[in-house]
Design a protein around this nucleic acid. Structure first.
Lengths: 213, 213
DNA sequence: TAGATTGTTAATCGATTAACAATC
DNA sequence: TAGATTGTTAATCGATTAACAATC
């Protein structure tokens, strides 16, 4: 288990997992070809991607739907509960708190943080809102591994630094700002506008007579 | 202008644009090296990416900050207002309606749609909420080019079909469902859980002793 | 001029695809 | 057995990097 795993492989693994979950109840076996058809990738790519992590299939037979899904869950590290902090309880933060998909994925938002005294002390979607001053201590003392940042751009680096001091393992930044984390801390950045801007670019390029992306 | 533009290039162009916007006021010129330092890519890649679209720099001098940003805006198709519909006024839909970043990017949400009679007829963040039955007609008659879908998974394909019938050019799907669009309509899919699951995967792989992604 | 920097070509690197022996 | 399908190797393809002539 020492191979490098490209980002794009993680993206496809997530698609395989989703496809497996949506498989007709009662399906026991699935072939790389069937997974490919459901996800839009190729059978060879399905097998290659999975082979990075082990040998999960049987030649001539295929993969066990249940066992393969279990392997993917394990690869994603979602086979045990991961505790998550959310920082910034605005519109997007509230939407994330109310989102049900995390729980079933093993991702549990256990604490929310904000600076607004009207929000601190409240409870949103079952999650207590605490003052952001408590963030570092909470990460350090309450086994919080991941943090989602939904604060204004100007505040982003500060709260990321606090989470890092507390020992956070991964940061998902939704603030439209470049933030830095030390080596060893995983970082993903996105923001609400990004996807729509990229879509606009695709539409624009395709209309300009280019090939489809 | 007939080269294929890989998805990853669009991603980097967006980063260059953001970096340009954050450049110290008064900067007139920027080199590929300076852009690289700000975005974490390499100078050669900056030049190569830009060269896909034209020659924007001067040898020995660099790029004009203002002119390059204008070119990027043009490439993204954001040099004129693009009208956008939002379908599904839940938590995420409301967050998108309230997000200010779209307007300054030239993306204007002109109509929101829902099926809930308590929401239909209201106005959120200045945008009127209409019944989803009006979606197709609105797209066709009100020059709406892009649609953001924030409805439950089960309803996603139906509203996408309606938007497509109305002549939508691009769809950004936030529902956790696989949707299909005909050739010629651009589609991007993501959902709130996806990024956090990918982050979890990164953290898990890095802790398992793998190289950094 | 000398130093800096672009745009592009060639070289390298990595990812995808095709093919097939091994296996059920 | 014959048909199906995996895991992996080799071949192809595409993207990144390095290098440099051209230019300011």
């Amino acid at each position: 288990m020492h191979k490098r795993v490209p980002d794009v492989v993680v993206l496809r693994l997530a698609a395989y997992r989703r496809a497996l979950r949506e498989f007709p109840a009662g399906s026991e076996r699935v072939s790389s070809g069937a997974l490919a058809a459901r996800t839009g990738y190729s059978a060879a790519q399905v097998r290659k991607d999975l082979s990075l992590f082990g040998q999960f299939g049987q030649p001539g037979v295929g993969y066990s739907v249940v066992a393969l899904e279990r392997e993917l869950v394990r690869i994603f590290g979602l086979d045990r509960e991961r505790r998550v902090a959310l920082v910034g309880v605005g519109n997007l933060g509230s939407a994330l708190l109310a989102y049900n998909g995390f729980r079933e994925a093993g991702l549990r938002i256990v604490a929310a943080f904000d600076v607004d005294p009207r929000k601190v002390g409240g409870v949103i979607a079952g999650v207590p809102v605490r003052h952001v001053d408590e963030l570092e201590g909470a990460v350090a003392g309450e086994n919080i591994e991941l943090a989602m940042i939904t604060v204004p751009a100007a505040a982003a680096q500060g709260v990321v630094d606090a989470a890092v001091r507390g020992g956070i393992k991964g940061v998902l930044n939704f603030a439209p700002a470049v933030v830095r984390v030390p080596e060893g801390v995983m970082l993903r950045s996105t923001h609400l506008g990004a996807e729509l801007e990229r879509l606009s670019c695709l539409v624009n390029l395709s209309l300009a007579g280019r090939d489809e992306l």
